[in-house]
Design a protein around this nucleic acid. Sequence first.
DNA 1: CCAATAGTGTCTGTGAGACAGTATGCT
DNA 2: AGCATACTGTCTCACAGACACTATTGG
Lengths: 263, 263
Amino acid sequence: MTKIQDPMLSFEEELNMYLAGNSIDCVIFGYEHQELKILLLQWKHHPVWSLPGGFIRKDEDMNKAANRVLIERTGLKSVYLNQFRTFGSVARSELHKNAQFMRLDLFKKSEVFSAKTIAWLTKRFITTGYFALVDIEKTSPKPDFLSAKCEWKSLKDTPPLLLDHNDIVQKALEHLRIRLNYLPIGASLLPHKFTMQDLQKLYEAILQKPLERSNFQRKLLKLDFLNRHEKQMTGAANKAPYLYSFDMIKYEKLIKQGIGFSF
Amino acid sequence: MTKIQDPMLSFEEELNMYLAGNSIDCVIFGYEHQELKILLLQWKHHPVWSLPGGFIRKDEDMNKAANRVLIERTGLKSVYLNQFRTFGSVARSELHKNAQFMRLDLFKKSEVFSAKTIAWLTKRFITTGYFALVDIEKTSPKPDFLSAKCEWKSLKDTPPLLLDHNDIVQKALEHLRIRLNYLPIGASLLPHKFTMQDLQKLYEAILQKPLERSNFQRKLLKLDFLNRHEKQMTGAANKAPYLYSFDMIKYEKLIKQGIGFSF
DNA sequence: CCAATAGTGTCTGTGAGACAGTATGCT
DNA sequence: AGCATACTGTCTCACAGACACTATTGG
């Protein structure tokens, strides 16, 4: 028979396996209904939201830890995942500066955690931010041990987040925009087949500005990494759009040297 | 009277002030004699070279720690300094995989450090790489406590470095190239006044490819952030080049949105 | 027929790249 | 004068941006 453990106890025991003082946080980007979204967790017994994150095992590469978090929250392997910045200010560990973020006080009061665990969790942490690009349709979000919900939230109405997580999201977005031409945006965020409008709206969502339809189409087709498929009959009273998919070999070749977008 | 301490003892005592498990390493770029250079340290009693680095004080922002290292090694304040990547693989802490890198064994044998200090120094570290852009002429390199030399070395003949420091330099270079248009390359690496050829050679050194002289000049002048000054009489049998300097207000404005270079 | 969206064609301005031509400083 | 390097002008091609035109789907 398998030994049944108090899950809270095992969580506390597990902390010994992890490096103290370092964590990782993931900004997982998805795209749905013409909006950029990120995956967020909501704590148990408390309305505050946070980024999916975790700690680094003593024998585990930091990148591996980020990948583990991604797999655990989304069920997805082998998607685009990369670190973008490390957050190491002293201020970020001041957990109690905002009453909204007192989730650890909550745990403290409820005596769920031992004093030792609380001390471990509330000391100074340096966290490395990772960002991932995933196809929302393929994900099956799962909360972690400390959370009640794990949901996709539109970037436009991101709630106030734990600690400095709002800053982390901001920096991830900047990174996304600056490195746009070096990231497999389309192939990661869209389903296998998509319309030209889908692709354009995605770029518009990231760049936060409208793009000219006909020029966008001409440019993308000229880059020669899209395969055109059958038309998509929508039932609407207008011409049906073609479906496209990426020729991944050509696409990745271009991504490496930086696609020459200059919108 | 000031108390005179055994310097080695104070170094060991100081370690208590620092976060255990995190470090920072700086790739400090300079430009001299038409070559890109980086600042390196050579260990005492041992030929191995390494990047200037340091630890993070328990009450110190990580960025501050990087700035402290930069100031201590170069004497320079307020230069361009930014983190570019964090290195967190388990493998990087395997200090002894290469006989060339056994400087800690050396210290061990010479019994310079206590067993406790050696344990502290040889445990797993996650290091954050920073890169800086400085004007070599303004620097006065100083070795740190563990080093005998602190010198500018041409990137072309970088010696084998401690641990994964060669990888760190590589990643810093990639970062430099990809973010070229967002970094104050010229104004940071060149002296106040310079010729157009100096600037072109700098870009060529970074991009590793020749640029067309007349087009480079036309493009840079059109961007309208260079002030033209008197000619520089070199004594050579040819036309003397103008000296230029940056109009920092216009320059920084352009840098923020990404200079439209597309060489 | 009309309305709405998809897709293609055309014009203009800008700029990169190539290269020719002119200017200047020294022997 | 001659040489070497600095600087400027010109030509061509590609492409971004604006916008007009055609095609297709269903009411």
